[in-house]
Simulated scan of single mutants.
Amino acid sequence: MVRPVSVGFDGSAESLAAAAWAGREAVLRGTSLHIVHALEWRASNLQFSPGASAQREWAESRLDVAREELAVTRPELVVEVDRVSDPPVKALVDAARESEFLVLGSRGLGVLQGFLLGSVSLPVIARASRPVVVVHGPEEPSGPSGAGPVVVGLGHDGPYGPLLDFAFAAAAVRGADLHIVRAGDAGAAAEALPDRSGWPSVEVHEWLPAGPAAQHLVEAAGEACLLVVGRRGHRPGPAVRIGPVAHAVLHHARCPVAVVPHG
């Protein structure tokens, strides 16, 4: 089954950038784009806030802008819009379940807005059963040629299958190299690598640095078009945890970051 690429949309500039990035991804993967349009508004200063109807009209106008831009830049793309009244976390986790992956927008560099407010983004990333990609602001070419490598980080805990499958597929559809940054037991990480014969077009480079994994991943992602990291699935209890490495790169990497559940 070919799943759509989904994107969370709330009318912010960050969500417009996320929609543009998600649209390009959907075309690369030969699938449709599913826009999840949130109707629930964040709390704000009621004294200076417009009424709910005015807010909704503004968001609808921004949605029209996103759809018009996609129609111009990706005329072959099938776009579906789902207006949801559920709480944002539930709506986005539900959308991710039926998607190749979910895309969210962020200003990046530690300033999180829109869907990337901690009360929404972290629970979504921690609970989603499919990968979640965070796009930092307007699209900018990566690398000197505008198409940098895909970088994937392998930590101490496997299995790495879903993480590497996502990274290899992302590199293949872009015609990009794959840079594997390994931490922990090098032997265990090497055993976890998949049969590369399934991705003959992907050139692979491996790096086993010493020191903090998050710092090396952020450095490696400086010229990347996408950074892929994992998080352990099925964490017990109500606490929201995505792991320290994923948390750090989400705040500091400037390229889009994919967080893939595994294990």
Rank of each mutant, 00 (worst) to 15 (best):
V135I: 11
H156G: 07
A91N: 03
L63E: 10
V120S: 06
E100S: 13
L163N: 08
S145M: 02
S121G: 15
S119G: 10
L112M: 09
S129I: 02
L77N: 06
D94C: 02
V93A: 09
L102G: 06
E98Q: 14
V135N: 09
R127W: 00
G110V: 01
R74Q: 12
V133A: 13
H136S: 13
R97M: 01
V134A: 10
L154I: 14
A71W: 05
G161R: 15
D86R: 04
G118F: 02
G110L: 06
G105K: 10
I125V: 15
A126Q: 07
P87G: 09
P162S: 13
G108L: 07
P87F: 10
P75T: 09
Q113D: 10
S119P: 00
S119R: 05
Q113R: 11
G161H: 13
E140Q: 07
E139S: 08
G114H: 04
A91Y: 01
L163C: 14
P131R: 10
H156K: 12
V89Q: 03
R62T: 02
R107P: 00
P144K: 10
A66V: 14
R130T: 15
P75F: 14
V120M: 09
G155N: 11
R62W: 00
E140M: 06
F101H: 15
R62N: 08
L122K: 01
R74S: 14
T73F: 07
V111G: 03
V84N: 08
R83V: 05
V134D: 04
I125P: 03
V84Q: 09
V151G: 11
R97I: 00
L117V: 12
F101V: 07
S129N: 05
L102V: 03
V134N: 03
L112P: 00
E68G: 01
L116I: 00
V151T: 08
R74L: 09
R107D: 06
A128K: 01
L117T: 12
A91K: 01
G158I: 09
G108A: 07
V103S: 13
V81Y: 07
S99P: 13
V124C: 03
E76L: 09
K90D: 08
P131V: 13
G148M: 10
L102W: 03
E60D: 15
S145G: 04
G118L: 02
L122E: 02
R97F: 00
D157K: 14
A126R: 03
P75M: 12
V89F: 01
V152R: 12
L63M: 12
A59Q: 13
V93W: 02
V111L: 04
